[in-house]
Design a protein around this nucleic acid. Sequence first.
DNA 1: GATGAATGAGGTTTCATTCAT
DNA 2: AATGAATGAAACCTCATTCAT
Lengths: 211, 211, 211, 211
Amino acid sequence: MQAEQTEKLTRREREKQRQRQEILAAALTLFSEKGYHNVSMHEIAATAEFAIGTLYKFFQNKEDLYKTLVLEKCDLFDGALYRILDVPRDEVDKLRDYVRVKAQMFREHMPFIRLFLAESRGASYNIDAGLDASVRIRYQQFLKKLAALFESGINRNRFKPLADPFYLAVALDSVVNAVLMMWIENPGAHPFPEDPDQILKLFFEGLLPPR
Amino acid sequence: MQAEQTEKLTRREREKQRQRQEILAAALTLFSEKGYHNVSMHEIAATAEFAIGTLYKFFQNKEDLYKTLVLEKCDLFDGALYRILDVPRDEVDKLRDYVRVKAQMFREHMPFIRLFLAESRGASYNIDAGLDASVRIRYQQFLKKLAALFESGINRNRFKPLADPFYLAVALDSVVNAVLMMWIENPGAHPFPEDPDQILKLFFEGLLPPR
Amino acid sequence: MQAEQTEKLTRREREKQRQRQEILAAALTLFSEKGYHNVSMHEIAATAEFAIGTLYKFFQNKEDLYKTLVLEKCDLFDGALYRILDVPRDEVDKLRDYVRVKAQMFREHMPFIRLFLAESRGASYNIDAGLDASVRIRYQQFLKKLAALFESGINRNRFKPLADPFYLAVALDSVVNAVLMMWIENPGAHPFPEDPDQILKLFFEGLLPPR
Amino acid sequence: MQAEQTEKLTRREREKQRQRQEILAAALTLFSEKGYHNVSMHEIAATAEFAIGTLYKFFQNKEDLYKTLVLEKCDLFDGALYRILDVPRDEVDKLRDYVRVKAQMFREHMPFIRLFLAESRGASYNIDAGLDASVRIRYQQFLKKLAALFESGINRNRFKPLADPFYLAVALDSVVNAVLMMWIENPGAHPFPEDPDQILKLFFEGLLPPR
DNA sequence: GATGAATGAGGTTTCATTCAT
DNA sequence: AATGAATGAAACCTCATTCAT
């Protein structure tokens, strides 16, 4: 009986989580298609097939729903990227993995990528303030990690000391984002090799010491 | 008398143009600060010191005002960049000028740059549809011109055939945007030489044939 | 077995009554603090430590809960006052007891007194209609009893025929209410003797025949 | 032309004031009939024959509309009563005038009287807080003035020193309110002389020194 | 029998737009 | 021609009530 009750609670908890995810999924789709201000709570509720009141059981208000949506996915992405960057390892290998994982994210989470790019630049305008700042701070932290990678790579003579490491990080990430975006938005429009190294080459060729 | 009337009309026309510009300027400031949906027509009218009805004499509605604003500035920018890219000239010199002019634009038109970056990515969400698409098409056209520059540069052995020219264009423009953005948002945070070539180097080093 | 079941039911009945009283007590506290419309059924349920559904087992809806609350307490009060007024006895002694019992009620049931005063005047606005009327009718009945007391007192030459007995009743009750209210809301702010006769004197002095 | 413009502005101002008054009148009627929480802004707008947005041009929100309504009328009433109480004059004459003016108010402003009685007691529950307190403070100030009248009357031997002057004030005002209320709610139900002195007699007889 | 998750009607408020002056 | 008062659709959110478990 104890077990049964425990199981019951667990089942309810799981059910709740499933609903929460459904709401977040519906909201993500809509937000990424139309933007924060062009999506109404009614619309989200209808898409998620819940009553409007149910949304407010899970999230305090529209802003809370949006912030939760963005930050939870951010955690996912940060986690994946940090797992690569935080491991002591050859810098070039790390960069390859970073591009590979990022490409996978772009393929599998395009709707969120749109939102994220909107938020991580100053270009969001979605929320009065707060998320914007918070996401940008997280992005800066990621860039610092990438910069550290460049710094150690330069120290270890894996890279030429071409520029301030932070600039290298900013530049690389922007190239990767832009190319992946284009690649995914117009698949097939321009030939692209499967090898993630190809993206790096766009940026790398001059960075690597002469072989 | 004919002349006088013509002159009168002309004067009126000029006056009208001046008012139109004032409205657009007020709107640009507000939109770039708070985003399309967080600015009301009342606010624009108050900032521009016109009655609300006057705004509707110049622009059909809020969306029209916004679109006009973005597209007119786009013309300005496209014009400046095309004047550089369209002239037959050494490709490396052209790129240097392109970076120089772009840096100047970022410095002098930051409010608009924010709006533009919001629109040129899929990240705008400001307008139901339309501007977004139109701006992106124009941006694609610009990228094609930049790609053509790379292609001719490769053909003329000024650049190594590192990748598809279009990718090179996308990558270069994104690096330039990202670095300029950071440079301007946090001036002094990271050292940066005045020479626009330095930005190119971030990207170029591998592209240029061994000297 | 019959007995056992009867006892079971009785025990259940008592348990039910206890729960009902707990709900009513929680509701009374909340209603008197914040007013009908500023208290939600959720809040009452939480305060009474019941599930929301349970409230609806005892009361048809929020209005029913409120009406029950008010009318049950009214019964209590009417009972106590009628026990005094209905007994054949000297009119002045009756009035003294009436003031004494009323003072006790104000001290011990302040939360309800607030609700009652809100309802008995035209000032309630809590419920669309119905309770208001019903409480006011009961109050009118009480006033009639008090008026009858004055009438018989006048007939028996205990009181001077100062005015229509009903007006005397209205006036006395309003004085008693107002003074008790003030006395209880600001205890100590103004000196007040313990003797309930003192309140009567405010009103009586001219009513009593010259001694 | 100056005059014309001035007149225009004045005319607009007057028009605005007229509309404002119409909104307040509609709101007063509805609030006094159904209570704050049972009246919607839509209902007020419909009754006043304005669009909903127009209400928000005049009042920040529903609460502001309500507070304005109550406080403006309070000013009116306080003004009328203070004009009587503040003049140096025989105390008995002042009381007669006070009753007379109050009776007139009850006859002419019954809807507001209901609201006021709801607010001046602790029985309002309409607004979270604020108006309630503010109205009650004003009422206390009025009572203090009435108490001062009793005090000076007692000092000048116009009244017997029956009780603390503040209690006398509270008692008198509550009697007057209760009797007027009844008188107006059930006109003709109980005979009432035109002479306002009759109300005072209910209260006075013992207060006046033996003639 | 008790529970509380789910519902959705209805409330307040904003703001793009119109049109009489 | 310019104005800005007036409009009302539509947004967000609450909460009384129901019903499957």
